[in-house]
Amino acid sequence: MSEQNQPKEHDQEHHIVSPVTYGAILLALLIFTGLTVWASYIDLGAWQIAPGLTLFWNPVVALAIACTKMTLVVLFFMHVKYSRKLTKLTVASGFFVFIVLIGMTMTDYFTRAWGRW
């Protein structure tokens, strides 16, 4: 709990990421950008989960790629991979509350108009 007496984590704080890693991440990000544009030009179809409830794959793929890119940026460019637990927890709590905002709002919209979503 106390962050004061943890020299091990302290050493990690000033981990310097090498330019090679940055270059590799840049390359990956550009490839993913190309990939998501390419995927958007293809009709990936849809999945009829139930009558009135359809999942289109194009947005799912696009958002999955966006999430991957975000993860790369957060982990490497923003050094979260090399940061202490507190930073990781902070990032996680941000996404958690973001999901709560969207998810709990959606519980209302989903159930207000069954089948229209």
Binding site: S40, A62, L63, A66
Partner: peptide, 25 residues
């Protein structure tokens, strides 16, 4: 400042597919 800049980048990473891409099909 780098953290801030990367964050702004991440916002765009999501805006790009949501606004431009996902409505082609």
């Amino acid at each position: 400042f780098g953290l801030y800049w990367h964050f702004v980048d991440i916002v765009w990473i999501f805006l790009f597919p949501l606004l431009y891409l996902i409505s082609r099909y």
